[in-house]
Each structure stands twice: as structure tokens, then as C-alpha cells.
Design a protein around this nucleic acid. Structure first.
Length: 705
RNA sequence: GGUCUAGUAGCUCAGUUGGAUAGAGCAACAGCCUUCUAAGCUGUGGGUCACAGGUUCGAAUCCUGUCUAGAUCACCA
């Protein structure tokens, strides 16, 4: 039986015996004793004064006495103000640790009686541009929450809904049709260098610390790194000379450089890009063809994204000239020829026009191939992928049925609306006057389809909080249509990701691209490990695997440790920090323990099957066992709150606690064999929990690093 | 303007069924590698928990108001 439950029960019993009264279970507050006090569990007695009619100290004493006599595990107790602190016998904790070790799925619930069937939708990309940092948060959250829910014994299906139709897709298609020949495209790439410079600025900024460090280190060693821009190098070295008398010259240097634009002079990446484009142009100039992923050397999603940007640029131009002809902004936006063409294309698409469909198929397949690469690198997957192009018609059908039954109404122009004024909301459009679907239409259809596909009890949508209103409406409309499961829709509404400079804006080139980001993280992990000389004796293959694990771990942890509901700031510089509260810190702790176990093994010291319950354990060791004790509880809470952040915080506490223990407790060199074995045993359990909990975040742990 | 969310150390974040002296990391400064991985550990400084009221034995946490920031209220998705 759970020990906290047992305590609670005995306290209720004590009150009955001592004061001849009963109290609400809620008034019995048992919590973990804070670190700075003696004890394992604490009973807060204030709420009980009502029935004891005695001062807090006396009440606590009386209950403490009763508990000590009736709960065998309690070793002693103390009273401070209104707090009754209970200490358990150390052997209790040691045997608890043994029970944890014997449990192969510690903290996880298996064989649940009535498991729920939960659908979780995440990712939901649009097929008109590549994935960016915002999608990364979405994907990591969705994947991790799915794992969290599984720990509670429920059946979970991960689904993706690809938004592959709609006006935005038509925009990319149209732009490709108009300006997709190889020469125009390559010209456009070159003229767009401003955006590329912005991108490089972000990249270099992410990398500035390691970059400067490398220059300074090679300078100190008397080497000259050849790949580094000469002017830039001279400036860095000059600044270093000025700051080197400081304690941390490199940090000082970085601080100076951050407020200094000189890193932009390192335009190596920029030049390379430009040269590559030029070369391509020369090679392809005489081919009268349309650009494709193959010829452009770009991933399909990136190529299509370029045309989305191109559309926007041309559209803006048209709006501008219409406004100068005297139209208002709104008028201009609605009547610009390009947007009309795009709208026409959407109608053609819905009508099943063969040419439009073919173009659409081709470009979509490019994008989807690109997404698959990104998903794979991110380590996320799905049980089923839905396509909006398959489901939107079902939505249309539902709306028309609802219209017939009088649940919705039609306006004069033919558009269909839901009246939600009774719910305190506005009217909401469900079908356009030209009969085409809107976002809401297809979401109605998809919801219906997936519930029947899986006979699900619950559906979770991992979607940003900018769509709170949409989901509020979705639930109401589904309920109006008479679906009972409508109330089991849950919108896991996560906060936006912002950069230190502010919000990401695709038009200003401040979007952090997912593929770039992943590459950058691995590169940083590589540089770090080289500087520290950590992986020198590894083969290239092993090395590659480890740095990928670390780079990805850093990114995932950085994003997941923040409460999903909150808007978060993504500072590239902090994200590549591998010290402190970071993924690599935890991975390192794990690797350390593995190395310890290996070494023990080769010294002939094996992890014992059982423990000697009489050994004396230190406060830190006790602390660790108690922390392990809370793991199942943490899992349950994280699952009900859909919050991987709670797991992340827990793992950090555990790793930190372990490192402190590791620092001042000899393990292999401990002469008392029982103690040495106990410490090894404890270490192994800690590492098992690290591995299991990191797995829930989708983060792998390396055996060595 | 209506609705919703947030505001905790210089920065990024923890801290909920209301409990003891509000915690970490980064940044700064001072230390610890002939000893199990120093991607580690220890210490110092840093706070009017946005502000003002209220509820009570007790409030960062609950309520009300104010200020600030963001989201949303589209025949965009």
C-alpha cells in the first residue's frame, strides 16, 4: 500500500480516537518535508485545530505520538510550529529502493482496467512552406504528451493532419507556374540576398561563442585557422588582446562582439551561397525547364516555400500600385489580379480540374518528402496521417446536413453560417458563398472521421493558442450537430515561440528554420566535444551518432522544459549551452553512471541482487531515494496536465541531486563493501529513471560522452 | 472596444488541492581535477513575486480593481 495513503488513514483514525470527531479527508494535509527540516513527511495541523481545540504544538504532539505507536515505519517525529514532521526508519527506504529495482516498468501503469483510447493530433503542417521553430515546439510536445499518456495505461494514437489544400497552397502553385522557370528562380534567389543575410546573421549569432573561442584558442596555440575570414580574425584577436587580462576573456569578448556588428563581416556562408547559386545558374541556364527540388538542390518543402514568399512579394507589389491608383487597402487586397487568380485556382481544384490537380499533386509530394526528412531527424512519428484533401468533403456534408436540420442558416449570398450568439460568441462562417470550404469545415469532417476510425474516447489537438477561439467554436458546432464526443475534445493550447528580438516574422526573415536549427545544434555539439576532447577515441560513425544525440537532446530539452501553455523565448545562444539546466547535463549524468557501472564490473564488483538493510545511509542518499519515490506521482501529474515540462524539471532535480552525491560519496573506492554495493545499486536505479524519463521527452541518452 | 492568457533575480525559467526562511540555470565574482568522466561540484552577491485593496491562523498561489504585454474577435489557415 502506498505509504502516504496509509499515513492519511492513520491520521483520520487518530483524530477519531483522540478528539472523538471526524474531519474531512481534505483537512489531512500530508506533504513531503522540506529539505531544511528533519523528517520525511509532514502533517500540517492547522486545519485540525478546529476539532482538537488545542494549540498547534500540542495537537501535533498528540497526533505524532499516536502515529509513532501505530505506524511501524515511523522512527521518530518532531514538531515545529504547526508542522508535524515524521521520520521513517532508514530500512524502510532501503527496502523501498529494492522494490523499485525489481519493477521493470517503475512508475508506469500497465493492465489498466478500462483504458481510454486517446487520439492526439500534432504537427498539422501546411504544405506551402517548410517547418520552423514553432512547428518544432508543436512536434516535440505532441510526441512527448503521447508518451506521457501511455505511461498511465491508456491506448494512444498519434495522428497528423496535413493541411494540403486551401488558398495558401494555391499561392505557391500559382507562383511556381508563373515564375518557376530555372532562370527566373535563380535570379530571384540572388536578388533575395537581403533575406539570406538576415538568416546568416541568426546563424552566426547562434554560433558566435564557439566561433570566437576557436579563433582565440588557435591564436593562443600559435595556429592560424585557415577557414576563418582574415579581417574578422584580426579584429577578434585585437579585441582579445584588450580583454585577456580579465578572468574570463572569452566571455568578455563575446559580450563585446554581441553589441558589435563585426560578426557580419564573416560572410563566408553568404559568399558560399551566392557562389553556389551562380554556379547552378551557369550549369542550368540553357535548359528551358521549370525548377524542381532535384535541379535546385533544395529540399522540396524549402523550394515550395520560396514560391510562397515570391507570391507574397508580387501580391504586395500589385496592392501597392492599386493603392496608388486610388483604391483603399482593403479593396486593393481583394481585387489584386494575383489573389483573384489564386482564388480561381482553388475553385478549379475543388471542381477536380485535371491540370490543377496534377500540379497540386506534384508540388505536394515535394513538400511531403521534405517533411519526412525533418520528422525523421526530429525523431517524431505518427500512427496515421490524415490529409485535409480527403476529409474536407465530409465536413461539407456535415454542414449541409446541419443546414437542412435548421441548425445553421444561409445568407442571401449563399454562404452558410452558425449562429453562436447564445453561447456568447459571434456568428461563424462554415461555407463560403462560392461553396468552397473554410478551415472550420474540414475540421468538422476530420473530427468525425477520426472518432469513428478509432472508436476513440478522447481527442487532443496540439495547436497553438492563437487558435483558442477556433477550438471553442469547433466544440460548440460539433455539439450542435449532436455528437456526444464533442465534449471530449481537448485543445492542448501551447504558447508561441519568440526570439529575443521579438516575434518571428516570415516576411522579415526572422523565422528560425527547423532544418537549419537541427543542423546547427549538431554542429555545436561537435565543436564542444572537440574542444573538450571528449570523443577523441571514437570512430567517426560513433562520434556522429553521439553528437546528434547530444545536439538534439539539448534542443528538445530546452524547448520541453518550459510549461507548454506559456509563451517562450528561444534564445539561440542559450539553447546551445550545454551546462546547467540542459539536456546534455542530464545525458552526461547518465553516461557517467554507465561508465561507473562498467568500471565496477571490470573491478569484479557487481550490482547486488538485494541490499543489506542495516547499513547507514547519508542524508544525500536518502534524499535520492525519496526523489525516486516521487517519480510515479510526477508521471501521473504530468500526464493529467499534459505537461512534459514537469518531467523535465524532475529529471533535472534528480540529475543535480545525483551529481552532488557522486561528488562527495566514493563508490568504487569505498572500503566498506556493503556501502559500496549500495551506492552502485542506487546509481543504477537513478540511471534507469533518467533513461526512462528522458525517453518520455523523446530524448536519447548516450552510454558514453 | 469585447473575450482570453500572462507579468516572480540583469536574462531564461521553476514554484496549485493556500503552508515553514520564494528556488534553479545563465551572466558576474571566488574556489575544487596525482582519486570512480570538471559537459561536474562548492561558495558570494542579486527579490516591494507588476501595483492597490480584500478573503484568513497563513497569499507568489484565491477574489476585485488598476497598469503593462500578447493572442483572438476574417468568405486566412
Amino acid at each position: 500500500m502506498d505509504i502516504e495513503f496509509k499515513l492519511k488513514k492513520t491520521v483520520l483514525e487518530a483524530i477519531e480516537k483522540l478528539y472523538r470527531q471526524t474531519v474531512d479527508e481534505k483537512s489531512v494535509q500530508i506533504q513531503k518535508t522540506r529539505k531544511d527540516f528533519e523528517g520525511d513527511f509532514t502533517l500540517v495541523v492547522f486545519p485540525l485545530l478546529r476539532v482538537s481545540k488545542k494549540p498547534p504544538e500540542q495537537t501535533a504532539e498528540e497526533i505524532g505520538n499516536y502515529l509513532k505507536e501505530n505506524v511501524s515505519e515511523i522512527h521518530e517525529y518532531n514538531v515545529i510550529k504547526g508542522f508535524l514532521n515524521l521520520s521513517f526508519d532508514k530500512s524502510f527506504w532501503i527496502s523501498y529502493l529494492e522494490s523499485v529495482a525489481q519493477d521493470d516498468h517503475f512508475g508506469f501503469i500497465s493492465n489498466k482496467e478500462n483504458p481510454k483510447t486517446i487520439l492526439i493530433e500534432y504537427s498539422s503542417p501546411n504544405t506551402n512552406k517548410p517547418l520552423h521553430l514553432g512547428h518544432v515546439r508543436n512536434n516535440l510536445l505532441g510526441y512527448s504528451v503521447a508518451k506521457l499518456l501511455e505511461t498511465q495505461g491508456d491506448k494512444v494514437y498519434k495522428v497528423n493532419l496535413v493541411n494540403d489544400r486551401g488558398i495558401h497552397i494555391c499561392k505557391s502553385m500559382l507562383a511556381w507556374q508563373k515564375w518557376g522557370d530555372i532562370n527566373s528562380y535563380l535570379d530571384w534567389c540572388i536578388n533575395n540576398t537581403d533575406e539570406i543575410v538576415e538568416k546568416i546573421r541568426t546563424l552566426v549569432k547562434q554560433n558566435i561563442f564557439n566561433y570566437c573561442k576557436r579563433i582565440v584558442l588557435s591564436y593562443k596555440n600559435g595556429n592560424i585557422g585557415r577557414s576563418i575570414d582574415e579581417n574578422y580574425k584580426q579584429e577578434v584577436i585585437g579585441l582579445y588582446e584588450k580583454t585577456k587580462s580579465n578572468k574570463n576573456p572569452i566571455n568578455q569578448l563575446v559580450n563585446i562582439l554581441e553589441n558589435h556588428e563585426i560578426y557580419l563581416k564573416d560572410s563566408k556562408n553568404y559568399k558560399l551561397l551566392k557562389r553556389r547559386i551562380d554556379k547552378q545558374k551557369r550549369e542550368l541556364e540553357f535548359r528551358n525547364e521549370k525548377i524542381e527540388p532535384k535541379t535546385s538542390g533544395k529540399k522540396g518543402d524549402h523550394l515550395v516555400g520560396d514560391f510562397y514568399v515570391k507570391f507574397d512579394q508580387e501580391y504586395k507589389k500589385q496592392i501597392g500600385s492599386l493603392i496608388s491608383e486610388g483604391l483603399t487597402e482593403d479593396e486593393a487586397k481583394q481585387t489584386a489580379p494575383l489573389i483573384l487568380e489564386a482564388q480561381k485556382m482553388l475553385i478549379d481544384w475543388e471542381a477536380g480540374d485535371k491540370k490543377t490537380r496534377e500540379l497540386w499533386k506534384k508540388m505536394n509530394s515535394w513538400v511531403l518528402e521534405g517533411f519526412d526528412v525533418t520528422y525523421k531527424k526530429l525523431g517524431v512519428d505518427f500512427d496515421k496521417v490524415y490529409f485535409e484533401s480527403d476529409t474536407y468533403k465530409l465536413g461539407k456534408k456535415l454542414v449541409l446536413e446541419g443546414l437542412e436540420k435548421g441548425m445553421f442558416f444561409k445568407k442571401e449570398d449563399g454562404s452558410v453560417w452558425a449562429d453562436l450568439t447564445d453561447e456568447g460568441l459571434d456568428q461563424k462562417i462554415l461555407l463560403r458563398s462560392d461553396g468552397t470550404s473554410v478551415y472550420m469545415t474540414q475540421d468538422l469532417g476530420t473530427a468525425h472521421q477520426r472518432f469513428s476510425d478509432y472508436n476513440a474516447t478522447e481527442a487532443i489537438y496540439v495547436v497553438g493558442n492563437e487558435q483558442n477561439y477556433h477550438f471553442q467554436v469547433l466544440k460548440i458546432v460539433l455539439a450542435k450537430l449532436g455528437f456526444e464526443w464533442a465534449e471530449n475534445l481537448y485543445h492542448l493550447s501551447y504558447g508561441m515561440v519568440e526570439l529575443p528580438e521579438g516575434k518571428m516574422k516570415s516576411r522579415e526573415g526572422t523565422v528560425v528554420d527547423a532544418d537549419d536549427l537541427l543542423e546547427e545544434m549538431t554542429r555545436t555539439a561537435d565543436e564542444m566535444s572537440r574542444e573538450l576532447g571528449k570523443l577523441d577515441d571514437f570512430s567517426n560513425e560513433e562520434r556522429k551518432k553521439i553528437i546528434e544525440t547530444i545536439g538534439l537532446g539539448a534542443l528538445k530539452y530546452f524547448i520541453l522544459k518550459v510549461d507548454p501553455k506559456k509563451t517562450m523565448t528561444f534564445d539561440p545562444k542559450e539553447s546551445i549551452d550545454f551546462n546547467g539546466n540542459t539536456g546534455p547535463f542530464i545525458q552526461y549524468t547518465y553516461a557517467r553512471i554507465q561508465s561507473l557501472i562498467k568500471k565496477a564490473h571490470s573491478n569484479g564488483l557487481d550490482i547486488p541482487v538485494g541490499l543489506n538493510s542495516k547499513i547507514n545511509i547519508s542524508g544525500k542518499e536518502l534524499q535520492l531515494i525519496k526523489l525516486i519515490h516521487t517519480y510515479p506521482e510526477v508521471l501521473a501529474e504530468a500526464a493529467t496536465d499534459y505537461s512534459p515540462a514537469q518531467i523535465a524539471n524532475y529529471i533535472y532535480d534528480l540529475a543535480k541531486e545525483f551529481n552532488q552525491f557522486y561528488h562527495d560519496h566514493p563508490i568504487l573506492s569505498e572500503s566498506n563493501r556493503s556501502i559500496s554495493e549500495f551506492r552502485l545499486y542506487l546509481s543504477k536505479e537513478v540511471s534507469k529513471i533518467i533513461k526512462s524519463s528522458m525517453g518520455l521527452l523523446g530524448i536519447q541518452v548516450p552510454e558514453r560522452m
